[in-house]
């Protein structure tokens, strides 16, 4: 496998590699790595900068360590897998593909993720998240596993505020802190867990070579918008 040092090749050098698999070394805050990439595999060593894998449109971006802010921004297809943690505003407006973070995510993960037709965005976080997870969620699936945080809060405040479609799954029995009254929380039945969660989580576990059984252990809750509480009733036309 080819290895490129980003300090020498720059973004240009990475872009040129096409559909092959390369390792990018020496990353330290360089922005836009894998931005808009359509094919191929990037293995990232070091700490890539903001807007990693933004507009990702196919292909795979694998990060050894942590990602900074705005990773997987407006991602369309493909796979971003972060072996460490991610910063704020992860997967903002993501429309399709898979964004996997083994560790924690910062504030505002999965804000306004979407689904349309065949495309369905999937965000899985192995650890816990900051506040405003899945704010304005418009479609797709967010799963937070809370590995290592069993029995603790695995999301921050204002989880799912303003979401109007899609589902947030949390591997916990605890209702998120100050959950909006415009959202409903339900316990996930065995069938839904098998049909929806098992395939995704198994894939997640295999990407990071960890035990899928551990990731699936225990009960999940689901957070969804309460369809009966639309915002349109707040308006009066003049």
């Amino acid at each position: 496998m080819e290895a490129l040092d980003i300090r020498e090749c720059g973004l240009e050098g990475i872009r040129k590699h096409g559909d092959g698999e390369i390792t990018v070394t020496g990353c330290l805050g360089e922005r836009y790595i894998g931005c808009g990439m359509k094919e191929g595999v990037l293995r990232i060593k070091g700490t890539p900068g903001n807007a990693l894998a933004s507009y990702l449109d196919g292909g795979t971006v694998l990060v050894d360590g942590n990602a900074q802010d705005a990773a997987a921004d407006t991602m369309n297809a493909g796979l971003l897998a972060v072996n460490g943690s991610a910063g704020d505003a992860l997967a903002y407006g993501m429309r399709g593909g898979r964004a996997y973070v083994l560790g924690d995510a910062g504030y505002r993960a999965g804000v306004h993720m979407k689904a349309y037709g065949e495309r369905k965005s999937i965000l899985v976080i192995g650890g816990r998240t900051g506040s405003f997870l899945g704010e304005y969620l418009a479609g797709g699936i967010i799963i937070v596993l809370g590995l290592g945080y069993e029995g603790k809060d695995i999301t921050g405040y204002f989880c799912g505020n303003g979401m109007y479609a899609g589902t947030i799954y949390l591997r916990t029995g605890k209702v998120p802190l100050n959950l909006s009254d415009k959202l409903v929380k339900r316990n996930v039945e065995e069938e839904e867990k098998e049909d929806i969660l098992r395939p995704i989580i198994t894939d997640f576990a295999s990407v990071f070579s960890i035990s899928a059984r551990r990731c699936l252990e225990g009960g999940f809750i689901a957070i969804e918008a309460d369809g009966s509480k639309s915002y349109s009733q707040l308006y009066a036309a003049v």
């Binding site: 700490t47 942590n66 704020d88 910062g106 504030y107």
Partner: peptide, 18 residues
């Protein structure tokens, strides 16, 4: 403001958090 700005002077911190 960014993790990279820490990593450049301390590649292997005992703990890094937001």
């Amino acid at each position: 403001s960014e993790e990279a700005a820490i990593r450049i002077i301390e590649e292997d911190p005992d703990r890094i958090w937001a």
